[in-house]
Amino acid sequence: MKVLKIGDFVIAILSAVLVSLSFLSYGNLSGNPTVHIKSGANEWIYDIVHDRTVSISGPVGSTVIEIIDSRVHVSHSDCSNKVCVAAGWKDSVGEWIICLPNNVFVLIEGDRTPTPGGIDDTAF
């Protein structure tokens, strides 16, 4: 009796290809762009695809930063001129918002513009 049949080779090759393809994920690991929030010596980093609200306290009070639907903006600030709030939503790598009075700096970092879902949804 034969040990291997044609289907064994087909399945083996298909699976080997799939396994090799999974190594592509290593090139993608930096994944989603990240929102960096700097205040004084501290820095906070968040994944842009996860919605959240972060409150940072600075010299004049608090700065509230919202990350929603892969975009970021300053929703509230205790400073007087509110330039940061007026700056509106940012969603691309390299874009930033700054609040000078409260010493808060928000920057989107990453390799590329966000694609919906990132690597999570593209495989499987």
Partner: peptide, 8 residues
């Protein structure tokens, strides 16, 4: 008929 234990 086409697949053996290896493929399965």
């Amino acid at each position: 008929r086409w697949v053996g234990m290896v493929g399965i």
